[in-house]
Design a protein around this nucleic acid. Structure first.
Lengths: 250, 250
DNA sequence: CGATCCTTTGAGAGGTCTCAATTCGCGTGG
DNA sequence: CCACGCGAATTGAGACCTCTCAAAGGATCG
């Protein structure tokens, strides 16, 4: 590699860092310290990044691609706890060992930071520590929401919620909220929603027949009626009061 | 209240603080600063502490009693995301608003800290910030584990896992791991495990008939065969390999 | 163009839910 | 002290949703 190439590469990397969610809003010092300990790597599709039970070593940010995080039961069932898209962080939230396996869904580009050095930065630059805390808080909120989906929603509600979440993500990214893309297989969707692959397939077919979505390509559904989709995600009856006063004796 | 009473009360409170999980292992300065912003309160049973959607204001630690945390779907279903026992903290992990409602299951004594002041302490005393981070990490790990239970376990597996978790908690607390106590109703258990009240009841009856547990009192099961219970929690087949090499193309 | 994996679709079984009735436990008041 | 009432828990019967097993239809890639 020539010197000019290295310079170009560093330039690309610095650009990646400045757009990184890890760095946004941080002062110059934090920014530079993060850059110094960061490293960018390419991961081919279907490759594990770390395993459930490993000792956590690095924090990852997705630059390109999608990563799935999952846990296994001892009898061989799998539960995907989340998908990490570009701009999202994973590898946070361990308790001794990694609770999940991380595996690249598609060919991905990741930026990673050694946890030990990250902790030192967090200790020395409290604003960065607060940022890390915000990130893991967001993950916990998402986890709580997903627990509600897994425990209390029907197959159609789960599927509708999933599609709406993807739509919402598109909106945030400035993409068309109706043109979705599913980089994961039906098996992955099933393991994320707590269903079987057949039920996922049948539910998608059902949504198509109802005219709520279209499916020109198997991995690229289009939302045709987002209002109906939202209704389906929430369930039938909407005669619900915001405050649960019948529960509380207040 | 007389001065001596106040002194006694303060003594009790300081004792509570020194045994508090929030304080364990912290230096004298952090300890004292926490004590200054802390307040202890009693909450009667079935009383909400905060509501889903509220602006988070305080972090709570359970001193006595049990608190349940839950979310509602728009069609009126409930998912309990966790129970907080003495020595456990809740109110951490928000993203704008509280993701869950917190409600005292039994008459409880709580110690709470204003979040704003807590953040200041975390910024000024990084070791405390790290401690907060560890706490929320543990919550995230628990949430992931519960997602696996909700999405991929049968009614018996869920019930067995629940009882084992309580048993494990007893063990940590130095109590008899076989003598359990369920302060929550069957409805609460159902909403925690993603089942109906009837299925919970039937599953408990089944476990009794199999001789895995006994039920002298409705809220106080006894584990008779913990090995079998562990087997049931994990599922039938145990021909499972620790590393998921069939998934990864490594 | 065959091989393989992913996906769809069907039929049937099974687990969990729903609805309903009964029993149990406990506090209240006669 | 006992009868009563109410909520919680248990139990039963049947329906329904989802899973399981099986086969066929597509997509992709060498």
């Amino acid at each position: 590699m020539k010197a000019t190439d290295r310079a170009v590469e560093t330039g690309i990397q610095m650009q990646a860092m400045s757009t990184s969610v890890m760095c946004q809003g941080l002062d110059r010092e934090a920014h530079e310290r993060l850059f110094c300990i960061s490293s960018v790597q390419h991961i081919p599709a279907k490759t594990a990044i770390y395993f459930e039970g490993d000792l956590p070593e690095r924090l990852f940010e997705v630059l390109e691609g999608v990563v799935k995080l999952y846990q296994m039961t001892l009898d061989g069932h799998r539960q995907i706890t989340g998908f990490a898209y570009p701009g999202q962080v994973f590898g946070l939230g361990w308790n001794g060992t990694c609770p999940t396996t991380a595996e690249a869904l598609t060919s991905s580009r990741l930026c990673s930071y050694p946890l030990a050095k990250l902790e030192r930065i967090a200790v020395e630059l409290p604003t960065f520590g607060v940022r890390l805390f915000r990130m893991i808080s967001a993950e916990l909120v998402a986890a709580h929401g997903h627990m509600l989906l897994l425990g209390r929603k029907s197959a159609i509600q789960k599927m509708a919620s999933f599609l709406l979440a993807l739509s919402h993500r598109n909106l945030e990214q400035g993409a068309d909220p109706d043109q979705l893309h599913l980089p994961m297989t039906r098996t992955d969707i099933a393991d994320y929603l707590g269903l079987t692959i057949e039920t996922v397939s049948r539910t998608i077919t059902l949504l198509c027949r109802m005219g709520v979505i279209a499916l020109p390509q198997r991995h690229d559904p289009t939302i045709l009626n987002i209002l109906l989709l939202m209704q389906m995600a929430e369930g039938e009856r909407s005669d619900f009061r915001p405050r649960c006063s019948w529960q509380s004796s207040l």
